[in-house]
Design a protein around this nucleic acid. Structure first.
Length: 153
DNA sequence: GCCAACGTTGGC
DNA sequence: GCCAACGTTGGC
């Protein structure tokens, strides 16, 4: 069971939306490195839900991977902002996973706090200018994150 | 609004 | 294949 961190803007799709929906398709990822991390996910993996473009940005909750290897349907939809004219049903380019809401943490763990606790090697998220919307989290870093939050793993 | 990081595109 | 220009993400 691996840990990941996945970013979403709370105004677009925040943890409150996921809590209401129960599960969600993590679609619209159009970055190959992020896509490849999704491909590496396995059932039962955990993902920290991170609010980006928020004030402050930070980790707000926890999700579980419940389906893997799904084709992202938005790439075929001309009306979608994620439409990709280079993708076809015969040769899809983007896939995604399904995530289930697990819980919201009692407090947010802000990026500023994470920067006090981790260097970029231990948690690449804290690197200045980091843009990747999906990142792996080592088990050591995951345990420390739970500890800082006062939450059980 | 500015800037850092970095992927993509296109000219050659 | 190189590289400059451009676009996007996202923090501050």
């Amino acid at each position: 069971m691996a840990h990941w961190l996945m970013k979403s803007e709370p105004d677009v799709y925040g943890i409150a939306h996921l809590e209401a929906d129960g599960t969600t398709l993590w679609d619209g990822i159009r970055n190959y490195q992020a896509r490849n991390f999704m491909r590496a996910m396995t059932l039962g993996d955990r993902a920290f839900f991170y609010h980006s473009n928020a004030t402050p940005p930070g980790i707000v909750g926890l999700m579980e991977v419940v389906e893997t290897g799904l084709i992202d349907p938005s790439q075929f939809d001309p009306a979608s902002p994620y439409f990709d004219p280079k993708a076809s049903r015969e040769a899809p380019r983007w896939d995604c996973v399904r995530l289930r809401y697990q819980r919201s943490f009692r407090q947010m763990l802000s990026l500023a706090s994470l920067r006090e606790q981790f260097d970029a090697e231990a948690l690449p998220l804290v690197r200045r200018g980091s843009r990747l919307s999906i990142l792996p989290v080592t088990e050591a870093s995951a345990l420390r994150i739970y500890g800082l939050l006062g939450e059980a793993p």
